[in-house]
Every structure is written in structure tokens, then in C-alpha cells.
Computed example of a mutant assay.
Amino acid sequence: MSDEVRMTLRLPEDLRDRLRDHAKSERRSLNSELVYMLEVGLRAAGVDTESSDGDSTVSVRLRGNPDSSPA
């Protein structure tokens, strides 16, 4: 990963704990595990990681509601 950005992510505490425990079992930091899981998930969803010009592209439309919070 050549360019990195910082971001704030809000998670339910129990999910954070499960992710942290899984990262530990994989001998990775929580950050590294999250990056890995996101990359795997994007590939599984059919999202290209990078195009030939270096820009991220989407090869298929993702399903699901991106914001499931109440209105």
C-alpha cells in the first residue's frame, strides 16, 4: 500500500473485540487484519483492486443497502 489515509471507524464493541481476537489468532495487527479482510471482501464481491491507470474501478454493482441505519 503506497498511499495511506487515516480514517475513523465506528464499530459495535463486540464486533471490534471479535475482529481483534481474530487478528491476534492470525498474528496480525487489527489494522492489518481489517485491510486484509476488506481486500478479500472486495475481490469476492467482484470489485477490481486497481485498473491499469491505478484508479480503483468497480466491475459489478455491489448489492445491499450501504446505509442500513434508521432514517
Rank of each mutant, 00 (worst) to 15 (best):
N65Y: 02
S68P: 15
L62H: 00
L34T: 01
N65L: 12
H22P: 01
G41A: 12
R27F: 08
V47F: 06
T8W: 05
V35N: 00
L38Q: 10
S51N: 14
P12T: 07
S56N: 09
S56P: 10
L42E: 08
L15G: 05
V40W: 01
V60D: 10
L15C: 08
V35C: 03
L30C: 06
M7F: 08
V35L: 06
L11R: 04
R43A: 14
S56Q: 11
L9M: 12
T57K: 02
E39L: 08
M7K: 10
S69L: 12
E13P: 05
L34H: 02
P70M: 02
S29L: 08
T8H: 06
R20I: 08
S51K: 08
V40P: 01
D14G: 05
L62S: 11
L42R: 08
V58W: 06
R10M: 11
S59K: 12
P70K: 03
E13G: 02
L42I: 01
D67K: 02
D48N: 09
A45S: 14
D53K: 04
L42M: 13
S69V: 09
D14R: 12
M1D: 14
R20P: 05
S2C: 02
M7V: 15
N65C: 06
R43W: 01
M37N: 09
R6F: 10
S25L: 08
Y36I: 03
E50T: 07
V5K: 07
S25F: 03
P12D: 15
R28S: 01
E4N: 11
V5H: 11
P66H: 00
P66W: 00
S52Q: 13
L62A: 08
R27T: 15
S52Y: 09
H22K: 14
G46D: 03
G64R: 01
S68H: 06
R63I: 07
A71L: 14
R16F: 11
D3I: 09
A71F: 10
M37F: 00
L11I: 11
D55F: 04
G41L: 05
D3F: 05
A23I: 09
L38N: 09
R10F: 05
R20V: 10
E39M: 03
D53N: 14
D48Q: 12
V35G: 00
L19I: 14
R6H: 13
V35M: 03
L11D: 13
S32G: 13
V60N: 12
P66G: 00
Y36D: 07
M7E: 14
R61E: 13
D21L: 13
R27N: 15
H22E: 15
T49H: 08
D21G: 11
R16P: 02
S2M: 10
T8G: 12
D67W: 03
S68Y: 06
V5E: 15
D67N: 12
G46M: 03
E4P: 01
P12V: 07
S51E: 14
S69Q: 14
S69A: 12
T57P: 02
V47R: 09
V40F: 01
N31M: 02
T49E: 14
E26P: 04
G46T: 05
V58A: 11
R63A: 07
S25P: 06
L11N: 07
L42S: 08
V5C: 06
S69N: 14
R20M: 09
R61Q: 13
E26K: 14
V47H: 06
G64K: 02
N31K: 04
D55N: 10
R28H: 02
